[in-house]
Simulated scan of single mutants.
Amino acid sequence: MAIFDKMIALWILVVFSFFTSCSAGKSEKQAKWDKYLKHIEDAVTDYEECSSENSGCYRSVLDADFKPWRDRGGIKQEDFERGKKDRRNGVVHYQIIGHKLYRQENSMFQPRSVGIEHFLLKLLPLLPDMELLINTQDYPMVNKWIDPTPILSFSRTPNEVDIFYPAWTFWSGGPFLKTYPEGLGRWDEQRKVIGKKSEEFPWKKKKSKAFFRGSRTSSERDPLVKYARQNPSYADAAYTKNQAWKSDADTLGKPPAGEISLADHCKYKYLFNFRGVAASFRFKHLFMCRSLVVHVGEDWKEFFYPAMKPWVHYIPMDVEMKDLPVMIEFVRKYDKVARAIADRGYKFVDKHLRLKDIELYWKNLLLTYHSLMQWKPKRDMSLKQIK
């Protein structure tokens, strides 16, 4: 009888432990959901919408980028010459002299240069004489721990002090894919195409799935792809080929998936954005779907990122993505909350990231840069005129 009693006691202990762990699991999940709701409530309460007038949404970015140069007493010619001497392939020397644009003969990435030069040429009548070093590579150039050089880059991390400029893809250039054989630009046209598709797939018609399609340029994307393979009802995420693809090992052991146009992303409610080699060009496009954007990682940025706020315009996730299942369950359960974030993200991009906002940013960027130049540039005869 004593043995039987011990067996019963042991069974009760096992059952109690099981239900206790289940209850604790539920409580832990709900606690995280409550934490998410609190983040959203606080972020929305604190958020003040910016003004597009005179680059108001991005003025703090310009101020921060040029503060090191103001502190140094301006941009000196020796700083510029040091940048010319130390620059790597992909950093292009431009001059604006007498309202004409000149560029070094060789440009490593011609389509990228075209995307940059569209804005420079358009602004020429307003611009005084100046010379610039514009980085057309993906990687930034100016480490924060060394003496800075005045190089403009489209993307950077907190470890660099390159001066932001709007990426070439607002007008032309990559990525070059089967779905975009001539490159992803132009932004004004993509806004229309994706916006039209979003009207075909309003929130109620979208699939309640997390979605991602892209190449494996970073292993930070792996957790979502692995999750989707195990949970196809909750997520559709797969790797496509890129130029470096050699075997299925490059797509995490599976054959590469077909490419999906950015417009067709609008069929899904939850769109994931990851860094690529640098900041991902897809980020701004995803918002035009009126879907909820989940942005993974916070280091890589473009000039407009700081104006968009986590929990207000998108949901942030750390690169380890340990809470991925809990987050996906959260957005599925709290559908109205998810939709409200999606709507705010769309409205920001639609209202504050138009092509005219990009042109205005370029204008303020160049005029601020010129105001800090401590020398008058002389025509470099090795540069050719760009018309």
Rank of each mutant, 00 (worst) to 15 (best):
83 G>R: 11
178 K>R: 13
207 K>A: 06
239 Y>E: 09
219 S>G: 10
339 R>Y: 11
16 F>V: 13
217 T>Q: 10
350 D>W: 11
82 R>M: 11
160 E>G: 00
387 K>Q: 12
273 N>H: 12
324 L>W: 06
342 A>Y: 05
74 G>M: 07
326 V>G: 05
183 G>T: 02
69 W>Y: 12
205 K>F: 00
151 I>N: 05
246 K>V: 14
204 K>H: 11
182 E>C: 03
350 D>A: 08
105 E>V: 04
177 L>S: 14
107 S>G: 11
240 T>D: 01
47 Y>M: 10
135 N>Y: 00
122 K>L: 10
363 K>L: 15
39 H>R: 10
32 K>R: 14
223 P>Q: 08
156 R>Y: 02
305 Y>V: 12
374 Q>K: 15
303 F>R: 06
165 Y>S: 01
164 F>I: 03
344 R>E: 04
186 R>G: 08
116 I>H: 07
162 D>R: 04
176 F>S: 09
43 A>S: 15
175 P>D: 05
300 W>R: 05
178 K>C: 04
289 C>W: 02
174 G>T: 02
307 A>C: 01
1 M>T: 11
10 L>A: 13
190 Q>I: 01
129 D>M: 07
71 D>H: 04
264 D>N: 14
139 Y>T: 00
362 W>C: 02
326 V>R: 02
119 F>R: 10
208 S>W: 00
325 P>D: 05
